[in-house]
Design a protein around this nucleic acid. Structure first.
Length: 462
RNA sequence: GGGGCCGUGGGGUAGCUUGGUAUCCUACGGGCUUUGGGAGCCUGAGACUCCGGUUCAAAUCCGGACGGCCCCA
C-alpha cells in the first residue's frame, strides 16, 4: 500500500482499486464503473442527502437526460459557460436529427421551461425540487476518479421564490442542510464566495464549500447559487401576485457530486486503507470468527441481535482465509468496527471490539452489545470529525505578503477582489483565489496592491 | 491550449537497445492442510491495446488510432 502523506495521488488511485470502489478499466475516458462496494457507499451518501433535504420540504423529481438545442440556447451567459463541454446527440439511428440534443451538463435548461408552466401564482411558491442523476461534461483536463470525470453523479436542488429575500433565506437553509450532511460525513470545510469570473454561469453569486486533501490541494465539494431573476427572465418564469400584477421568480440551486466520496476517501483514509464514517459504511460492524467449537453459532447470534437494532453487520465466515487476513482486509475496506469472537469469548460470554480509528481492543459483555456497539460507532464518528478538523487546521496558513504563500494547503490573506491581483498571485504562487471567506468581516490591505481588502482563501485546486 | 512519458495474463511487472522459445510476484480454479494480525505444499487456467507497414520471422523496428500518466499555460 502506498504511503498516503508522501504519495497522495498514487495512494488515492490504489485504494480505489483495492477497496473495489470503481473499476478504472472501462474503455471510455472519464466514465466510472461503480462496483458494488463503492456504489453502496455512494447510495448511503445519497440517502443522507435525501433525508436532509426532504426534511426541508424538497421533493424529488427526475428529468430527462436529453435537452433540445433550442432549450439550451437561450441567449445569455449560462450556455456560454458550458458550450465547450457539452456532448451532443446528432443522430437517431442513421438519420441526422432535425434538432440536436444535448446530454445535460446540469439541468437548468431542462427544468426551467417546465417551471414556466408549473408556476402560475404566488400560491405555487416556493417551488423546491431536487434530483440525483448523471450529468455529462466533456472535460478536457485529465480525469481522476470521483474528482474530475465526464459522467458525474450529481445532486441538484432547484428552487423558485416570490422575492429575493425568500431566495436569500433559501441560501441560508442550504447551509443548514450542509451542516447536517457534513457532520455525518465528518468533513471540514470553508464557505468561499467565488469571484465573479469563477461563479456558476448565469448566477448572481456562488458560494462554494471547499475542503482540502492531504496533497494540499483544495477540493470543491458543494456549491450553492443565487440566481436572482437571471434565469426566470430568460425562461419566462412568472407568477401572479396578490395585487394582480406579474413578477419573475427568484431562484437558487444547490449542487454536489461524488466528490463527497473523494473527500471521504482522501481526508479519512490512512496507510491501511479506507476509513469510513459509520453513517456511510456499507458494513458498520464486521464479525470475525476465530475457528473453534460453538464460535460460528455465537457469532451469528450476535449478528442477529445487532440486525434487530438496524446495524449493518456481517459475519465473515469465509473458510479459506485466516483471521489475520480478514482483519487487514476489512480495515482496508474501512469498516468502522470489528468484533472478534473465538472460544475465549464464547466461554466468557464476552466480545472483543476493535475500532478502525482508535488503537487497541476492548472486551465487552455479550449482554450489553446493543448499547456498546451504537456507542462505539458514535465515538468513532466523533474521533473522525476531530481528527479531520485537526488536519484541516494544519493545512490552513495565514499570509500577510506574497512570499508567505509557500505552504501546501489553503492560504488566507487579504485581497482587494480584483482579477489583476488574483492573476498575479496565481502566476507567482500557483494558487488562485477561491474567493472571499464567507462569515469573516476582517478587513485589511490587499497582499498584492495594498488597497483595502477582505479576508480571502487561496489554493491550488483540483 | 502546449510539451513529455507509457500501453505485456484480473492487478503489478521482466523482456524491447541487438527481431526468433514471454519472466517473476500477486490474485483466481481444484486438492490437502492451517486459522487469536496478511499460513504452507501440490496442481491448473490465464497476456504482448488495435489497425496498417517493414521482414522468412514483430511484444521488440516504423506510421496511425484508441487509452493511461506527468509537467507547463
Amino acid at each position: 500500500m502506498e504511503n498516503k502523506k508522501e504519495n497522495f495521488s498514487e495512494w488515492y488511485n490504489e485504494i480505489i482499486t483495492l477497496a473495489e470502489l470503481s473499476d478504472k478499466r472501462y474503455p471510455v475516458k472519464g466514465m466510472n464503473v461503480w462496483l458494488p462496494y463503492g456504489w453502496k457507499i455512494m447510495s448511503l451518501i445519497d440517502s443522507i442527502v435525501r433525508k436532509a433535504v426532504d426534511k426541508k420540504n424538497f421533493q424529488e423529481v427526475n428529468f430527462p437526460i436529453l435537452i433540445g438545442r433550442s432549450m439550451l440556447e437561450v441567449e445569455f451567459e449560462h450556455i456560454r459557460g458550458f458550450e465547450n463541454e457539452i456532448y451532443w446527440v446528432t443522430k437517431g439511428g442513421k438519420e441526422n436529427l432535425e434538432e440536436e440534443l444535448a446530454l445535460r451538463p446540469t439541468s437548468e435548461s431542462a427544468m426551467y421551461p417546465m417551471f414556466s408552466l408549473w408556476v402560475r401564482s404566488h400560491a405555487d411558491l416556493p417551488l423546491k425540487i431536487y434530483q440525483i442523476v448523471s450529468v455529462y461534461r466533456y472535460e478536457t483536463k485529465h480525469t481522476r476518479s470521483f474528482i474530475r470525470i465526464r459522467e458525474i453523479h450529481f445532486f441538484e436542488a432547484h428552487t423558485a421564490h416570490a422575492t429575493y429575500e425568500d431566495a436569500e433565506a433559501q441560501m441560508d437553509q442550504y447551509k443548514e442542510i450542509w451542516r447536517e450532511i457534513s457532520s455525518q460525513l465528518c468533513l471540514p470545510y470553508f464557505y468561499d464566495q467565488r469571484p465573479d469570473w469563477d461563479k456558476f454561469p448565469g448566477a448572481k453569486y456562488t458560494i462554494a464549500f471547499d475542503t482540502v486533501l492531504p496533497s494540499g490541494r483544495s477540493l470543491q465539494i458543494g456549491t450553492i447559487h443565487q440566481y436572482g431573476t437571471n434565469f426566470s427572465k430568460n425562461y419566462d418564469i412568472k407568477y401572479l401576485k396578490e395585487d394582480g400584477s406579474f413578477d419573475y421568480v427568484h431562484q437558487t440551486t444547490y449542487g454536489m457530486s461524488e466528490r463527497l466520496l473523494a473527500a471521504i476517501i482522501g481526508i479519512h483514509g490512512d496507510d491501511k486503507g479506507l476509513v469510513l464514517p459509520p453513517d456511510v459504511a456499507p458494513i458498520q460492524v464486521i464479525i470475525i470468527p476465530i475457528p473453534g467449537s460453538g464460535v460460528l453459532e455465537y457469532a451469528r447470534d450476535v449478528e442477529n441481535t445487532l440486525s434487530t437494532i438496524n446495524i449493518r453487520v456481517k459475519v465473515d465466515d469465509r473458510e479459506n482465509y485466516t483471521p489475520g487476513y480478514k482483519f487487514n482486509d476489512w480495515e482496508m475496506r474501512g469498516v468502522p468496527l470489528r468484533i472478534e469472537v473465538g472460544e475465549r469469548e464464547v466461554k466468557n460470554r464476552t466480545l472483543t471490539l476493535s475500532m478502525r480509528n482508535i488503537p487497541g481492543k476492548v472486551t465487552i459483555e455479550r449482554s450489553k452489545v446493543i448499547y456498546e456497539v451504537p456507542d462505539a460507532l458514535i465515538r468513532i464518528r466523533e474521533k473522525m470529525m476531530d481528527d479531520a478538523q485537526k488536519v484541516f487546521r494544519d493545512h490552513v496558513f495565514r499570509a500577510s505578503k506574497l512570499e508567505d504563500f509557500t505552504n501546501e494547503g489553503l492560504i488566507t490573506a487579504f485581497w482587494c477582489g480584483s482579477k489583476e491581483c488574483s492573476d498575479r498571485i496565481e502566476s507567482e504562487t500557483e494558487k488562485s483565489a477561491l474567493g472571499f471567506m464567507v462569515g469573516s468581516n476582517e478587513t485589511g490591505k490587499c497582499v498584492v496592491c495594498g488597497k483595502e481588502g477582505r479576508l480571502a482563501v487561496f489554493s491550488k485546486s483540483y
